[in-house]
Computed example of a mutant assay.
Amino acid sequence: MESIKKQIPNIITLLNLFSGCIALVFATKSNFELAFYFVCLGIFFDFFDGFFARMFKVSSPLGLQLDSLADMVTSGVVPGFVMFSMLLKSQSEITSCPAFAYLGFVVTLGSCYRLANFNIDTRQTDSFIGLPTPANTLFILSLPLVLQYSDSLIVLEALSNQWVLLAIVLGSAYILNAEIPLFSLKLKKFTVKDNLLQIGFLIVSFLLIFFFQFLGISLLILFYVLLSVINNKIIKKQ
C-alpha cells in the first residue's frame, strides 16, 4: 500500500505529460481549441501532483525530474509549436520565409531554461522569479483562439502580423527567465487580511474571463505580471 501511495503523484505527473502529448497532436492539426483544453487539463494535473506528494509526504528527486520533463512537453513544446504555426500563417506572399516561423520555438527554449533553473533555484518555494511556464503557456495557447473568435479588427491585425508575433515570442522567452518576483496563489494563512492580493487577483481573473473569454486569459497573464511588479514596489517602500 505504501509503495502505491508513493507512485500516485508520479502517475498524476504522467497524466500531465499524456495531456500535453494529446494537445500537441491537436495543435499539429490546427485544432487550437482542443489543444488549449488539453493543456489546461495538463496544468490541472501539474498542480495536483505536487499537492498529493506533499499530502502523502512522498516527495522525491524522481518526482521532481518527472515533473519538469512533463512540463517540458505541456508547457514547452506545445506553446512553441503553436507560435511556430501562427508565425507560419502570418507570412504574406511578399515576406514569405518558412524558416522564419521556426523562431516560434524560442518559446520552447526559454521554457526549457526556466524549468531547469527552477529545479536548482532555492528562492522559488513560496513565490516565483520570472513567469511560471504554465501561465506563459495559457497566454500563448489563448492567442490563436483570440484570433479565431475576436471581433476586434485591431486585435486581429496585431495577431496576424509576423513582427508582433515575433515580439510576443521574444517577450515570452524573456519574462520566463527575468529576475522579476511574481506572487504565488498559494494561501499561507487562511485569513482574508493575509491573502488580499490573491483574492483580489482571483476576482479580477473571473471578471476578465467572464467578459472577454479567451482574450481575458491573455489579459489575465499580463495583469498578473503588472500586479506583481506593483506589489514589489509597494513592498520595497514599506
Results as ranks from 00 to 15, higher is better:
68 S>D: 01
59 S>F: 01
58 V>F: 01
54 R>K: 08
73 V>Y: 14
55 M>D: 03
81 F>M: 05
72 M>P: 03
80 G>C: 03
73 V>F: 13
61 P>C: 06
59 S>W: 00
80 G>M: 02
48 F>R: 10
45 F>A: 14
44 F>V: 15
64 L>W: 05
59 S>I: 03
45 F>T: 08
47 F>Y: 15
40 C>Q: 02
50 G>Q: 10
77 V>A: 10
48 F>G: 13
45 F>P: 13
59 S>C: 06
67 D>A: 05
71 D>S: 01
77 V>Q: 04
67 D>C: 09
64 L>Y: 06
74 T>H: 08
78 V>Q: 06
65 Q>T: 12
42 G>S: 04
59 S>K: 13
58 V>Q: 04
73 V>P: 11
74 T>N: 15
57 K>C: 03
44 F>D: 12
43 I>Y: 02
70 A>S: 15
40 C>G: 10
69 L>A: 04
55 M>H: 13
72 M>A: 14
46 D>W: 07
58 V>Y: 01
63 G>F: 01
56 F>P: 15
50 G>V: 08
42 G>P: 15
46 D>T: 12
40 C>Y: 01
71 D>V: 01
48 F>S: 11
77 V>I: 14
76 G>L: 01
81 F>P: 07
48 F>H: 08
59 S>Y: 03
45 F>L: 04
75 S>A: 10
69 L>E: 10
44 F>H: 11
49 D>N: 13
77 V>W: 05
50 G>F: 08
43 I>V: 15
41 L>P: 14
44 F>I: 13
46 D>A: 14
54 R>F: 00
